[in-house]
């Protein structure tokens, strides 16, 4: 299930629903990304996330399909917030179910690397010192590129 929402979500509630849907799986990996309290020692007041309705959901569906082609996973949940978020609020939740843990761990890691570098979201950090559009760090691109190498090597 893919959900892009401007409403706050409760990860515990979402995970409990996912567990129902993923019944029978031997392993579930769940990742929750949250708004940081500070960046570079500067307090963060808010994070504003923009998306391209319709096209963003399509970009996430492609990433999820890619994960399903690479690992034997039985269910995937991706919830991503948009709009204005406060420090401590969840931005993203990824849940992956599989028969065994390795596939679930790797698929969740892959999904986050690709959500950070390929899904159509734009993120602005609002700090006391001003506003900045955030772009992925070199490290983020490097991690995402590693999955490409693995695919070619397979």
């Amino acid at each position: 299930m893919i959900s892009v929402t401007d409403q706050p979500f409760d990860p515990a509630n979402a995970l409990s629903k996912f567990e129902q849907r993923a019944r029978g799986a031997g392993a579930i990996v769940n990742f929750i990304g949250k708004v940081r309290e500070e960046a570079d020692g500067d307090p963060v007041e808010a994070l504003v996330l923009e998306h391209y309705p319709g096209v963003t959901e399509q970009s996430i569906a492609e990433i999820a399909a890619d994960a399903q082609a690479r690992w034997p996973i039985s269910a995937v949940d991706i919830i991503h917030r948009v709009g204005r978020l406060s420090p401590g609020e969840p931005i993203v939740m990824v849940a992956v179910a599989s028969a065994h843990r390795r596939a679930a761990f790797e698929a969740a890691d892959f999904l986050m690397d690709y959500l950070k570098t390929r899904a159509l979201f734009w993120k602005k950090e609002i700090r006391a010192s001003g506003e900045t559009w955030i772009e992925p760090r070199d490290d983020d691109y490097k991690h995402a590129a590693l999955w490409e190498d693995k695919k070619e090597g397979a």
């Binding site: 096209v55 993203v92 959500l115 390929r118 899904a119 979201f121 772009e135 992925p136």
Partner: peptide, 29 residues
């Protein structure tokens, strides 16, 4: 670039009734 909700690669032809979106580097998660 996205033309009519499809990501395109390169400098594609467009017409007067198209929707053309310009996407800077993304940052999700």
């Amino acid at each position: 670039f996205v033309v009519n909700e499809q990501i395109v690669s390169g400098d594609v032809p467009i017409s007067d009734d198209d929707e053309v979106a310009f996407l800077p580097p993304v940052s999700g998660g």
